[in-house]
Write a protein that binds this DNA or RNA. Structure first.
Lengths: 222, 222
DNA sequence: TTGTCCAATAAAATCGATTTTTTATTTGCT
DNA sequence: AGCAAATAAAAAATCGATTTTATTGGACAA
């Protein structure tokens, strides 16, 4: 499985550290490195075919993203999961992305709307396929919605939360079918509200999109 | 200057990486390593008296905290500062800490209130002295206000924002005198509102505390 | 049995040296 | 002079080996 496309784009990741970072992130997000797993440097070295230094650096980077936990003098482990954690991520996402969406819409511009339309189109084309491509476009869409807000830190937080959340999706199983969920419709009406410039409505829709998806996913967690 | 006390408490930081992390954080927060400065590994090695690996690891940790920027294949530098960045931090702090305070108060408990009273007392005792001790207690107080919320991720964000903000305070100069600012009074009335359980009022007070301080500091930035 | 001490093993952490990449400087050409 | 390529110097990145620390598995005594 390879969702490295979910990383920031334009990554001509040259350095060993970058590659290790991207691959480890991938392995953790998809659950191939299960929550709570001890991450032994030596083992990772074999898997990733690189030295200890880049791996330790990559793990350090992932630590601050909450995907890896650092245990002083006793190595690293993949961050644990729990239903409380899941619920918290959901709550925070609603709040922060809601906030970001408002700001994004307050800065509304034709260019932004047009890019949204394109990105939405690219996502729709792939229609809920469980492919990496869809995952990438789906993230693109959600990040683009809030991306017009003038707050890099807020965007960073949202990005981080997105990744933390997607891990639960993967762990619950990509197999799970969002049957009857009409996710595409939800995306569509959010986009429409954004285009219409109805801030309150758009925020409402976005939040309930997350809440519905979250409630749905919750059943599969733990 | 040593504000390592601002780090999480109970840090019997044994490993070289931890020490480097703490010291570098310190140097950057206080501005001894000025914003934008290139951070050459070799130079830091001499300063910190340790090898390259712990330093690179520490820098990687600081990267995700937004205090250090990583330039692929060309090293690290201390994060730049700007008035926009300062304004953003301020805005986000108001939103996120406001939110966290509400949640904190909704979970109100006698134990929490008592610990607040004690922490406030410890801070007051040091009364705006520009000492490291005061800085530590001041951070303790603000983190304790929101610390009763049941959201580790939110607390982490707030903690990070606190540090990003305090750097501006240090850079503006510890010398600056908050004359007429009556900061102690503001802390007092916030505490009172929290004790009284008046959520809306407390949030208002906290936010305007930050806004006032921010507006005041702004004059010294850039 | 149960617990404590000690050795043996495994793993983490770190160092010093090497390799790779970038940046600065010089050289040669039009 | 002005530019481009080549070289030299500096710095980053990485590796392999060493040191330190934690963990495991007895051996022994209460």
């Amino acid at each position: 499985m390879n969702i490295s496309a979910l990383s920031d784009p334009a990554t001509s990741q040259s350095s060993a550290t970058q590659i290790a970072h991207s691959k480890l992130r991938d392995l953790i997000l998809t659950g191939e490195l299960a929550p709570g797993t001890k991450l032994k440097i030596d083992h990772l070295r074999k898997i990733l075919g690189t030295g200890a230094s880049p791996i330790r650096e990559a793990l350090s980077l992932l630590t601050s993203d909450q995907l890896v936990v650092r245990h002083e003098q006793r190595g690293f482990s993949a961050a644990a999961t729990s239903s409380e954690d899941f619920a918290e991520i959901l709550r925070l996402r609603c709040s922060l992305e809601g906030m970001a969406l408002r700001q994004s819409m307050e800065n509304k511009s034709d260019d932004w709307i047009e890019s949204l339309v394109i990105i939405h189109h690219r996502m729709s084309r792939l229609q809920q396929s469980k492919s990496d491509d869809f995952e990438r476009e789906h993230k693109n869409f959600h990040m683009a919605l809030i991306g017009n807000c003038d707050s890099p830190l807020l965007l960073r937080f949202c990005n981080q939360l997105y990744d933390l959340n997607i891990r639960y999706r993967f762990i619950a199983g990509r197999s799970i079918d969002y049957k009857g969920r009409k996710v595409e419709d939800e995306h569509r009406i959010i986009l429409d509200a954004v285009i219409a410039g109805d801030i309150d409505h758009a925020e409402d829709l976005l939040r309930s999109h997350y809440e519905t998806t979250g409630a749905f996913l919750k059943a599969f967690i733990k």
